[in-house]
């Protein structure tokens, strides 16, 4: 019954292809007929393409740039924040007309500054920056509070919770999500957060989280831990669930954010410990960013942030429904 990562990955790759095709078949630009990026070279920098979210946001942006008649210049950081930041230098040297930058940590800030000084507008995805014209993102405030409420419900309003929270200090979107989650928990005085908080690694997150969870479980024997929450995304939750299944500790509830098809599949299994999530629409976020670039060149005034709708997921049935609704296919 344990769902292994490999299967999840294969499925998500296949899905990515399907979603990609679908979006080419129905260009979103049709909704906004006068948008165009004709003759523009748009740099698209993504921190990595291993994970569903990153890849979909990247593909969304690339597809939409092409659909709007522009020429995308893609660079991939291989899930290394430093390489991702350095890639912006390459876009600067290549003199693109605009840059869409997906994720990234503070190392990109000076690069944004240099791009801005060179007159190249920067559009970000899931990254708030003073140098960015616009940040396309999910409603992180809503995601944080929603997952806080869902988690509190799942453990009956009391108990001990461990949290993977490596990026609260490094990424603003993570700060929002985790702090909103903690804000909700203030009203549940019987829920205690285990200290120190855990720090997942940025690359190879599932395997890293699996090991850290195994260590955590030996420290907290049965009955002393009620939930594990991943504060800013859900790739580590794959490893967390694996560790729980390996040790038979599936009484511990798992919650996280993002809800890509890989994690929705895990949630949809019967008696899955992975009980709550909030689904984002990364492909749509990527597309939105590209459309915003076109709007900017079309002379439109943009708000600092564009929010893309999120979908709360609670329990296996809900996971199956969201999986279908977001076009990932059908789960039995």
């Amino acid at each position: 019954m344990a769902l292994n990562i490999k299967r999840a990955c294969l499925t998500s790759v296949a899905l990515a292809a399907v979603v990609g095709l679908a979006s080419i078949a129905t260009p979103a630009a049709a909704a906004d007929g006068n948008l165009s990026l004709k003759g523009k070279r748009i740099g698209v920098a993504v921190v990595g393409t291993q994970h569903f979210w990153d890849r979909e946001a990247f593909n969304g942006a690339l597809d939409e740039v092409k659909a709007l008649g522009g020429e995308p210049v893609p660079v991939d950081g291989g899930r290394d924040n430093q390489v991702h930041a350095d890639n912006h230098d390459i876009l600067l040297a290549a003199k693109v007309d605009a840059v869409i930058s997906i994720l990234g940590d503070a190392a990109v800030e000076p690069k944004f500054k240099a791009l801005k000084e060179a007159g190249i507008p920067v559009f970000t995805v899931d990254h708030l920056s003073p140098y960015s014209i616009n940040n396309s993102t999910s409603d992180n405030y809503y995601m944080g509070t929603t997952i806080g409420r869902f988690m509190a419900d799942a453990i009956g309003g009391k108990g001990k919770v461990a949290v993977f929270n490596a990026f609260e200090g490094a990424l603003r979107i993570c700060a929002i999500r985790t702090q909103m989650w903690k804000y909700v928990l203030q009203d549940y005085p019987d829920i205690k957060i285990v200290k120190p908080e855990l720090a997942e690694s940025f690359a190879n997150a599932p395997e890293d989280a699996r090991k850290k969870t195994l260590d955590l479980l030996t420290q907290y024997p049965k009955g002393t831990l009620d939930a594990i929450h991943v504060g800013c995304w859900d790739q580590p939750a794959i490893g967390v669930v694996q560790a729980l299944e390996e040790t038979g500790r599936t009484e511990i509830k798992v919650t996280a954010l993002d809800a890509g098809p890989d994690t929705l599949e895990i949630m949809a299994e019967k008696n899955s410990p992975f009980v709550a999530n909030v689904a984002q629409q990364p492909h749509k976020i990527g597309m939105t960013s590209a459309m915003n670039v076109a709007r900017y060149f079309g002379g439109e005034k943009l708000l600092p942030q564009t929010f893309v709708e999120v979908v709360p997921v609670k329990g296996p049935d809900s996971a199956k429904k969201v999986y279908e609704d977001l076009g990932y296919g059908k789960l039995k």
Binding site: Q82, A85, D105, A107, E109, A170, A203
Partner: peptide, 10 residues
């Protein structure tokens, strides 16, 4: 200087 700070995995 390059990373504007420290990040794991560099």
């Amino acid at each position: 200087a390059r990373g504007s700070g420290w990040a794991p995995g560099t």
